[in-house]
Amino acid sequence: MSQEESSLLSRLSDAVLAMDEAETVRLAQELLVQRIDPGRGIEAGLVDGMRRAGDLFEREEYFIPELLICSDAMYAGLRVLQPHLPSGAAERKKGIVVIGVVEGDTHDIGKNLVRIMLETAGFEVVDLGRDVPPATFVERAESAGAHIIGLSTLMTTTMGAMSEVIRRLDERQARSRIKVMVGGGPVSQQFANRIGADGYAANASGAVAVATRLRQAPAESRVP
């Protein structure tokens, strides 16, 4: 890697971290002009910047507004670089995750953060949005060949729908293929254990750790 290339990549990463969407787009275009591999631009530039933003989030230096603005910059850069990826480029997929809010209002910010951080970590995410019925989670997970279903809720009254998803997977004997992770305001580790979910995450970076663990140990037995 030339010095120019590494300098451009680190500036791209910095632009994402600095929440500077215009600069991110400008640098991504410059990268194309310089004929630098767009795949490297994505990994060592955009995603690297977003990962650093995630680190700052975890250290409580960045909060949700900052993370959202960084992700806008990252996605804007992706829109520039992705069309230039050679077809058949090596997939960076760590797994497919279907996520959605069981029942909630538009304050599904947590779910959006989970999507952003999972995508940053290399997962393909199918986002079903909010007010998703249990049957839809299962159908969409099967049709997408998903490895994980991520369920979130904001309403305590609808937490039963989470166990319903698990019951339906059980019925289809799909639990070894499709893992279930849960999160959201009223949900806790205790609750996850109670309904037999494979994992619980309190926040977006936790969700990445749980999804990674579930992919690494697919045969691991779940907490009773």
Partner: peptide, 16 residues
């Protein structure tokens, strides 16, 4: 305010 403006946009605009 976060219930009258799309909350994701709202949170970003608190900074921008």
């Amino acid at each position: 305010a976060a219930s009258i403006v799309d909350p994701v946009t709202f949170l970003k605009e608190l900074r921008t």
